[in-house]
Design a protein around this nucleic acid. Structure first.
Lengths: 204, 204
DNA sequence: TTTGTTTTCTGAACACTGTTCATTATTTTC
DNA sequence: GAAAATAATGAACAGTGTTCAGAAAACAAA
């Protein structure tokens, strides 16, 4: 065990410590109220210290951004066992929506907030692309069973993703309240929105 | 012309002055870079003055929020002349999407940004509800021609709105870049996403 | 026109934000 | 133990929304 090794390990531990604090504040108070000073106070270090482990605030949130995708991908893991492609696609939509409902802030960070995506480097969305590729693969599977004939996989994946994202984004940003006059709560709205969309997918 | 009248008019003129400055900065630099001090500097008043005409920053952006809806509704005006309900619905989707593409920042403010929607009062979304009701009316028209049989107007309106919003929101927040690896630009993506969705609507 | 009152405006101050950097403290190496 | 390297600090900078005592301007009455 060389000194360099320990140092490296300690560096990693510190990053984890910062990330844990950031996550806990982020999940409790949301993105806007998670400041460097807040995080520093939580781990009992000075604000400046954080910049010895992360280049900027965005880097912290990009780490959480990736964690969000890991969580989502984990939640999708069981879908591998759904043999029939279209059944898998439908289940995927369900899981996606459930993830958004249960992890509002993570979803926000992953698909709505601009911050951790600012940089030009497409590297930033590696995890997102992985998830998107998973969707495309499932669609390809569907095509093999004769579904979605004549439809382009890229465009169709975007259509499906958009439909799901639309509901989740309206939900996350409080626009579902538009239906409160009709006494329809956001959960019922999303449940039925999903059903209707699946219904459309079946007939395309 | 009483003095009180003139004073009231001057008050209104000042509000307009502030709003004009706010809009110009907002459309040029976006929401985050539009600060009270920026606005104040533009109209050559002190920052404190603005608070004599608007209770808080949100009130300014709520005014712009409403303006956005007025613009969108104006853009939808010609649709009244499209007689066939389903044709009108399709055209509506087109206009909605075009509005988002041409007025990225307004769209963001209207449907994504949380800020001007914070307050509990549903009053805040009067304009939004008006637009949503217009959509529902068009759907009702479609139902009268035998379309969307057995489908609930509220749920279906949400499904359609979500699908359109999903594409626009992914566009506004730079998530369309996910398809750059496949050499598909955001515009092509949205164009085809729209086509595919309409195709689904036709078959539901 | 001058005085007194009311309205309008200012800009410093408060409590925040992300980020930098000279200084201080700790640890490692020789 | 002294010297060198590494780590941590916290004040400072430039910015944010918002408030409010005091100054300035507009108005009303004498």
């Amino acid at each position: 065990m060389t000194v360099a090794n320990r140092k490296q390990r300690e560096k990693q531990e510190m990053r984890t410590l910062i990330l844990d604090a950031a996550r806990s504040i982020f999940l409790e108070k949301g993105y806007d109220l998670t400041s460097i000073r807040n995080i520093a106070e939580k781990i009992e270090y000075s604000p400046g210290t954080i910049y010895l482990y992360f280049k900027e605030k965005d880097e912290i949130f990009h780490a959480l951004h990736e964690e969000g995708f890991r969580r989502m991908i984990m939640k999708m893991e069981p879908l591998q066992h759904v043999a029939e492609p279209f059944e898998r696609l439908k289940a995927m939509g369900r899981v996606y929506m459930e993830f958004a409902k249960e992890n509002k802030d993570f979803y926000d960070l992953m698909f709505i907030i601009q911050a951790p995506m600012n940089m030009e480097e497409h590297e930033k969305w590696k995890m997102g692309n992985q998830a998107l590729n998973f969707l495309k693969e499932v669609i390809k599977g569907c095509k093999k069973t004769g579904r979605f004939k004549g439809k382009d996989v890229n465009y169709l994946s975007f259509t499906i993703w958009s439909a799901m994202h639309g509901m989740c984004a309206l939900f996350c940003r409080g626009r579902c309240h538009a239906y409160e006059e009709e006494n329809i709560d956001p959960m019922t709205l999303m449940e039925n929105g999903y059903k209707y969309f699946i219904n459309m997918l079946e007939k395309i």
